Amino acid sequence: MTFPDAALPIGFGSGHPSEPVVAHILAQHGVQRTPSAKLTLFQKRDFLDPPLCETLIALIDERRRPSTVSDYNGDAAFRTSETCDLDAAHPAVAEVERRLAAFLGLDPAHGEPIQGQRYAIGQEFKGHTDYFEPQGVDFHKYCSIAGNRTWTAMIYLNAPDAGGATRFKTIDKIVQPETGKLLCWNNLRPDGSPNPSTIHQGMKVRAGAKYVITKWFRERPWGFDAE
């Protein structure tokens, strides 16, 4: 794996500052930063080209299943999409991994496998955060090895005919889906604690279908042996 300007990939430990990641992202061409003191959020249009997006959509359709949530809150309609675990050995998925690692400058060892999601008409993901609540019943199950989630990278693979926007509720920022557009944000505050201002929702698709892929990074390497 090579990185721009021969930079070393950035890892994460407890309380690792986010400034090097922010600086690395801002050095990329065409990046837009949302002006907010409450969260760190970036967009980049045309991060993936349409043919690559079409290939990923086909992969999601082959293996999609009902999405799940951690710390279930009793709302069966909280997340109604479908999910697919993408095979890292597939050339299209490997190419996305390469591009994300170069764009973010993060150590690939800290990344979870890429997931794909499909939203049909009426499907949504209500307001949620991507980090795991330290007091949540599933925190130890999901975070004892690799730690909490640090950065999220999400890419729209298409634009549905209507609906399907992503809304960041705290700052009332609505991002419309565009084929190949990347969103990425830091799930933690500068001190390393979870940032509740990252709460966001996948709004209902009103016509057509929406496809996205998501990759999360952790504080420690994915699969790290805590023993």
Rank of each mutant, 00 (worst) to 15 (best):
220 R>L: 15
95 E>G: 03
202 G>A: 13
36 S>T: 09
105 G>H: 12
18 S>M: 10
181 K>S: 12
180 G>H: 10
9 P>C: 03
82 E>N: 03
155 I>E: 08
46 D>C: 04
200 H>A: 12
167 R>M: 06
177 P>D: 02
223 G>H: 11
79 R>I: 13
214 T>R: 05
120 A>V: 11
70 S>G: 08
92 A>S: 15
66 P>S: 08
7 A>N: 11
164 G>I: 07
142 Y>A: 09
88 A>K: 03
50 P>K: 07
214 T>F: 01
125 F>L: 11
218 R>C: 02
34 T>P: 00
182 L>C: 04
74 G>M: 07
102 A>T: 10
51 P>R: 08
203 M>L: 15
48 L>S: 06
177 P>L: 02
206 R>E: 15
120 A>C: 11
196 P>L: 02
71 D>P: 03
57 I>K: 12
198 T>V: 14
77 A>L: 13
5 D>M: 09
118 R>C: 13
75 D>T: 09
139 F>A: 14
104 L>C: 15
13 G>K: 07
194 P>Y: 07
59 L>M: 09
14 S>T: 09
220 R>A: 15
47 F>L: 02
195 N>L: 01
113 P>L: 01
129 T>L: 02
130 D>H: 13
177 P>N: 04
188 L>S: 06
30 G>T: 09
25 I>N: 05
133 E>K: 12
23 A>S: 13
203 M>Y: 01
117 Q>V: 08
50 P>T: 03
162 A>V: 04
51 P>S: 11
190 P>C: 07
126 K>Y: 01
123 Q>H: 03
190 P>T: 06
219 E>H: 12
